[in-house]
Design a binder for these strands. Sequence first.
DNA 1: AGATTGATCCAT
DNA 2: TGGATCAATCTG
Length: 202
Amino acid sequence: MILKQKFYQRDTLKVAKELLGCILVRKLSPVKSPQDGVAKGEFNRVKPKIIKAVITETEAYKGKNDLASHASRGRTPRTELMFGEAGRAYIYLIYGMYHCLNIVTEKKDYPAAVLIRGVEIIGSPTSKRKSDFPKLNGPGKVCREMKVDKKLNGWDLTKGEKIWIERGIKISPKDIKKAKRIGVDYAKHCKDYLWRLSLISK
DNA sequence: AGATTGATCCAT
DNA sequence: TGGATCAATCTG
């Protein structure tokens, strides 16, 4: 079952927690030439290609007072999406090289999103590097493997096209680890919030 | 530990 | 318009 806007339009911490165990699905269209996130050599793919992955790690970015959030400096062309409709993709380029995938949460005009930090690929990984799958730790690797880049920025994840999230396995609260978010040392007191949630691997 | 890499944002 | 700053990752 595809997660609808109602799922995303709630408290960000709750969404971040419930996304663990859900299935991130990426559907790639057939292509006749190198384009749209198609790996080198993937010419003339005649059938759609589906990549599925269990979400194993998320981070919450919630409200203007969260100094770790891009939205803490208010509305800008870039952060406008975080103020917009829940269930949209907010994707940005980081360090000039890597993309990060976030899902917008909460009500309109309240800036918040959940960053997808880690997944386990179920379907068909394209990377040749064995270390890159099936477990992917790090938002940059997630996007590389799932062919997510800024072309999908603003995409509606509730439509069930190109990219969406499905309800997955039920997760027990005791299997969820809370920790400080990564790479937000600049965020004063907010850096210590335990807003990084991950599945304890067994 | 250091290099990489470019969009973004704020101060000139 | 410049320049610091990044929700990171890879080497060594």
